[in-house]
C-alpha cells in the first residue's frame, strides 16, 4: 500500500470515518457539515507522491452562466493561500481542490488532516457565495464582497 494511502486510512480509522476505496489510490467519502453535506474524493498521485483532495460543491452551473461563475471562481481564488476552486466547462461541476506533495516517507495523519480541514473549511465558507449568485440573484462582485 502506498504510504499516503496508509496515512489516509489511518486518519479515517482514527476518527471512525466511513470511506469507500474505489481502487488503490482513489477514496470516496462524505461529510455532513452545518451548511450542507459534501461529497469528497482523495486521489493519490503515486509517481509524484501527492495527495489531492477534492470537494464536490453541490451546485451545477447551467451553460448560460458559465462565464459568470468562472469570474466568481477567479475572484475567490485570487489570494487563496492553499487550494483553489475549479469549474468543469463540460458539465458545470464545481470542485474545490487542495493538493500536497510529500517526501517518500509515510506522512503523519495530522498532515493529511490539514488538507482535509482546508478543503471542508473552504467548501463551507464559499457555499453561501455560490448559492447567492446561482439562486440568490446577487452579482458576482456583491456576493464576493458580502461572502
Amino acid at each position: 500500500m502506498h504510504p499516503i494511502a496508509k496515512a489516509l486510512e489511518a486518519l479515517f480509522e482514527k476518527h471512525s470515518w466511513r470511506y469507500e476505496k474505489r481502487d488503490e489510490n482513489y477514496y470516496d467519502f462524505t461529510f455532513n457539515c452545518d451548511v450542507n453535506r459534501f461529497n469528497l474524493y482523495a486521489l493519490i498521485g503515486t509517481y509524484v507522491n501527492t495527495l489531492s483532495i477534492y470537494v464536490h460543491m453541490p451546485f451545477q452551473v447551467p451553460a448560460t452562466r458559465m462565464t459568470e461563475i468562472a469570474e466568481l471562481i477567479s475572484r475567490i481564488n485570487y489570494n487563496m493561500t492553499l487550494g483553489n476552486y475549479e469549474l468543469d466547462f463540460h458539465d458545470g461541476e464545481i470542485l474545490f481542490k487542495v493538493s500536497q506533495s510529500f517526501s517518500l516517507h509515510e506522512p503523519h495523519p495530522d498532515e493529511i488532516m490539514i488538507l482535509l480541514d482546508c478543503a471542508l473549511t473552504m467548501a463551507q465558507t464559499y457555499f453561501p457565495t455560490f448559492g447567492a449568485v446561482l439562486y440568490g440573484g446577487r452579482s458576482v462582485t456583491e456576493a464576493v464582497q458580502h461572502g
Partner: peptide, 10 residues
C-alpha cells in the same frame, strides 16, 4: 431542487 435553493439563498 431549484425551490430549495430559492429558500436557502433568496
Amino acid at each position: 431542487l431549484t425551490g430549495i435553493g430559492l429558500i436557502l439563498f433568496r
